Simulated assay, not measured.
Amino acid sequence: MNRRYPDTSHVRLREIKSTFTAEGALCAATLYVPADASPDQALPAILMVGGWGSVQRALTSSFTHSFVEAGFAVMEFDYPGWGESGGFPRQGINPWRRTRVADTALAHLKAQPMVAAHRITLWGTSFGGGHVVDLASQHPEIKSAIIQVPMLDGLATTLATPPLRLLKMATLGLLDLLKPGRPIYIPTLAKPGEFGTMDRDEAWQAMEIALDAWKDRAYDNRVAARSVHTMPFYRPWLRLKDVKIPMLMIGATGDTVAPFVSDKVRRVGNPNVQVIEVDANHFDPYFDPLFPQMLAHQLAFLKQVEVSEEKPLAARIQRTG
Rank of each mutant, 00 (worst) to 15 (best):
G51C: 02
P246D: 06
D220L: 11
R100S: 08
I209R: 13
F20Y: 10
S126A: 12
A102Q: 06
D279L: 09
L13V: 03
L166H: 03
P292D: 05
F233L: 14
T253K: 14
S308C: 02
R3W: 15
G53M: 09
K110V: 01
R319L: 12
Q148E: 12
L135T: 01
Q274M: 13
V101L: 03
L238T: 13
Y32L: 15
R3F: 08
L167T: 11
E306V: 04
V273E: 06
G53D: 12
A252P: 00
H118M: 02
D176E: 07
Y286N: 02
S54C: 07
A73W: 09
F77E: 03
I250N: 07
E141Q: 15
A315P: 00
M1H: 10
H10K: 12
P39A: 06
L26T: 14
H282E: 04
A25L: 08
H139I: 02
D212K: 14
D78E: 10
R3T: 02
P6R: 11
Q56P: 00
L174W: 13
V49K: 09
L172N: 01
F77Y: 15
F63E: 02
V223W: 07
W96A: 07
K241R: 15
L189I: 12
I16Y: 08
L290W: 08
F127M: 13
L174P: 01
Q148I: 14
V223C: 10
V101K: 03
P95F: 13
P289C: 09
V265D: 01
E194Y: 08
I250T: 11
T19V: 07
L167R: 10
L174F: 14
W96M: 09
D201T: 05
R182H: 14
A156D: 13
F287E: 10
Q298T: 08
A117V: 08
A314V: 14
V273M: 13
S66K: 14
N270P: 10
R14F: 03
F195G: 03
M1A: 09
I16P: 01
Q148P: 01
L290Y: 12
A314I: 15
H108A: 13
D242T: 01
Q56G: 02
P89N: 03
L109Q: 01
T256C: 05
L152I: 05
R226A: 14
Q205S: 12
T197Q: 14
E202L: 09
P162L: 08
W214Y: 13
A58S: 08
I184A: 04
T125P: 00
Y32H: 15
P259W: 11
V257F: 06
H139S: 00
W214E: 10
T104W: 00
T60P: 02
H282F: 05
F88G: 00
Y185Q: 10
A156P: 00
S126D: 07
M75R: 05
R100Q: 11
D36I: 09
R14D: 12
E309D: 15
T320K: 10
A206G: 12
L238I: 04
I245Y: 06
W82D: 01
G173I: 06
L26N: 13
R57P: 00
M114C: 01
P289N: 10
V55M: 12
G71M: 07
D263Y: 09
R100L: 10
D40E: 15
G129F: 11
F195I: 06
L43C: 07
T320Q: 11
P180G: 02
A156W: 05
V132R: 04
